[in-house]
Design a protein around this nucleic acid. Structure first.
Length: 215
DNA sequence: ACCCAGGGTCATA
DNA sequence: TATGACCATGGG
């Protein structure tokens, strides 16, 4: 029950996070793709560009030429790759009529379907499952690995799905809302601790800490 | 002038 | 299966 107590501690410290920061499930999906290895502030600029162009819809994105799409996505980095990924995702989304993920009772088939889309890896798929389709999936990201590795609660050699299932097994009695808040709190904690304690030796959440063997 | 961010794919060995 | 190169902007 260590994982539950870490959750309670984070919740007490930071409060409810109310994730994902988006107005619609589709915006969650777009944000999940754009935030790959990218600071969220930059993603928001790209999302603003899409909104101003009235292009935050799968149909518009599909019809937009890649170079034009890339111009809107520019602030979020990797714009050529992301334009391609976003369009492919939208094509899958429209073709399979997944506007309503609720018609799929089990998470596994939908997860496999998401992973079959090029440019959607395990973390992006799980962001979408949890924050757009409201599924009980635990998202594993770099922060999760660093924080829980440092706490000695996970094995660093584990791959993505091993870690995900470890969290899901220990938290299987919790609600989807707990899964939702937990990942959000991990991200909040990582950002806060690195902001308030920029000293690498103290924060132990940045890449250089791993390189120095601190974490 | 660095380092890094809410990853993923592809080519090598 | 396990590394490494690559993608690219904006903030610290």
């Amino acid at each position: 029950m260590r994982l539950k107590s870490v959750y309670q501690s984070l919740l007490k410290t930071y409060g409810q996070q109310q994730w994902w920061p988006a107005d619609t499930p589709f915006e969650v999906m777009v944000g999940a793709i754009l935030t790959q290895n990218t600071a969220w502030d930059n993603v928001e600029r790209a999302l603003d560009n899409l909104k101003k162009a009235k292009a935050l819809s799968p149909d518009v994105i599909i019809e937009t030429p890649n170079d034009k799409l890339a111009r809107w996505l520019k602030p979020s980095g990797y714009f050529n790759i992301k334009a391609d990924r976003l369009k492919q995702y939208c094509q899958w989304y429209v073709e399979h009529n997944y506007y309503d993920g609720l018609k799929y009772r089990h998470s596994l088939p939908l997860r496999e379907m998401l992973l079959s889309v090029k440019g959607v890896g395990p973390e992006t798929a799980d962001d979408i499952l949890l924050y757009a389709f409201n599924r009980k999936i635990f998202v594993i990201d770099a922060y999760t690995r660093r924080i829980f590795g440092r706490l000695g609660l996970i094995d660093k050699s584990s791959d993505y799905d091993e870690l995900r299932m470890l969290f899901e097994e220990e938290l299987k009695k919790e609600t989807v809302n707990v899964f939702n808040e937990y990942h959000a709190l991990i991200v909040m904690h990582a950002k806060q601790i690195c902001k308030t304690r920029p000293d690498c030796e103290q924060c132990c959440l940045q890449m250089k800490c791993e390189q120095k063997g601190v974490v």
